[in-house]
Design a binder for these strands. Structure first.
Lengths: 206, 206
DNA sequence: ACCTGAACACCGTTCAAGT
DNA sequence: ACCTGAACACCGTTCAAGT
């Protein structure tokens, strides 16, 4: 199980630890993740990790940051394949992309949206990645308001409202607080729950 | 710091451990909670706890269950003081009560809505308490539909949609993912985010 | 019946010492 | 400059032994 290295020097230990951490979080969840196991996986003493990461949290923050960048990219791509100006459709796709991202790697999702790793501002690039993700949602709302399909409101408020609902839904489904029997059903039920919010977000029909 | 007992027998150790656990979760959060510290607080060896709780999770489940019962009571009381039949008002109050509950004891809220303690169904009474809480929200939706103010939908779907949004909001605020400078602002912003959902939940005006 | 003490197999973190 | 080994202060859990 444990890979051993005969060479003294490691190729790129920080990168290797990051990759191991991502894998182990996916395997055991953020709670079950262990710095020592990551080091073992890479074939290095656990003390070695401290040369490259200040502590366990710093390593998790790196994994978390990668997650946010991936999510931002996913959200930006949600409406690229079949562009449309219909705000409701665009937002539905955004929501679907978000929930699919969560379902694809639940532990990573929980790492990203669970206890803040950065409450003390130690990892500025993590906050930057989070902001990038939110920005993708805000951009969508601005687009919807520009084409006149969304109600007059601050785009950031609509974005946060959407974000709140969709993050809440993903969380409830992953934790099986909302019971769905399959991924397909998870997506279908998302549509149903989202419907009232979407209606309320749209400009009154003239 | 550590209370010591000279008597061999303890009055009601299970109850004392539960109380200590609730206090310690509030102090250090669910992550920082330790079975050993709870035992120390009560003045008993840590092994003694295993006479009354199968493991650490069982003790946390007890605290969690108390939390759900308290939340259910809070939600049921939300519209008792100034009864009304206006569905939007009632639901806004429900949301406010929920978020206030979260703000009053963030660690307990995270214990309740974080990693499921009962994924394997070991604690049936915990699930019962959760159901009781959801039932309070469903009852509210049924009331709103009976008086004709809510759109035609399955009450449980409206309830879960509401629940999802409000739980998501509380979580984002507690984790400072949504930045508000005070409790008052947290409540005000809740109203703002809820507005589109509430609009969408209401029956079209005739 | 209920509790203690000691033990086991783990953690995260630190630090002198090695190459 | 980078890594190891050993140590420290903790965990959760188990179990023989005590009262």
């Amino acid at each position: 199980m444990t890979r051993r290295r005969s060479t003294y020097h490691h190729g790129d230990l920080p990168r290797a630890l990051r990759a191991a951490a991502r894998r182990l979080v996916a395997e055991h969840g953020p709670e079950g993740f262990t710095l020592r196991e990551a080091a073992r996986d890479v074939g290095v003493s656990h003390a070695a990790a401290y040369r490259h990461f200040a502590d366990k949290r710093a390593l998790l923050a790196a994994v978390c940051e990668d997650g946010y960048r991936a999510l931002a990219a996913t959200l930006r791509a949600a409406n690229r394949r079949r562009p449309t100006d219909d705000a409701a459709t665009r937002i539905r796709r955004l929501a679907a992309a978000f929930v699919r991202f969560a379902l694809d790697d639940p532990p990573r999702f929980h790492l990203m949206f669970g206890p803040r790793l950065n409450l003390d501002g130690r990892f500025p690039s993590l906050d930057a990645a989070t902001d990038e993700t939110l920005a993708a949602v805000v951009a969508e709302m601005e687009h919807g308001m520009a084409t006149g399909r969304l109600r007059a409101a601050r785009p950031v408020d609509l974005a946060i409202g959407f974000w709140t609902m969709v993050q809440g839904y993903a969380d409830m489904v992953l934790r099986r607080r909302i019971k769905v029997r399959s991924r397909t059903m998870a997506m279908a039920y998302l549509e149903r729950l989202l419907a009232p919010l979407l209606d309320g977000m749209q400009a009154p029909r003239r």
